[in-house]
């Protein structure tokens, strides 16, 4: 990952995700949720899994959750990563 990027909105049911490259080879997550903290662990796990699938580390992820469903968080995070890399999904490699 080379650039910073963002995706999503602050509107209800959505999530606003900002990602920034960092020096260390880790995934750093800052999560702010306007809904229950109950789901914080699940959201964090989802973010880690999604980044793992995409093979991304060395990243700081800032998440402002407005009560988004799992697939929304995943979609926004993927969009942010693709934007940061300046690429589009290579669907041929996925199923």
């Amino acid at each position: 990952m080379i650039n910073s990027a963002h995706a999503g909105t602050l509107e209800s049911s959505d999530v606003y995700i900002q990602i920034n490259p960092i020096e260390e080879d880790i995934v750093e997550i800052e999560l702010h949720s306007s809904v229950a903290e109950l789901y914080d662990d699940m959201i964090e796990e989802l973010i880690r899994d999604t980044l793992k699938e995409m093979g991304v580390t060395g990243i700081n992820v800032h998440v402002q959750d407005k009560g988004a469903l799992d697939f929304v968080i995943k979609a926004r995070l993927q969009a942010a990563v693709f934007r940061a890399c300046g690429t589009v999904p290579s669907w041929e490699e996925q199923s």
Binding site: H6, T9, L10, E11, Y16, K66
Partner: peptide
Amino acid sequence: LKVVTHLLNAAL
């Protein structure tokens, strides 16, 4: 929230 989203995008 729509306004803040767009302002945030513009800043970032």
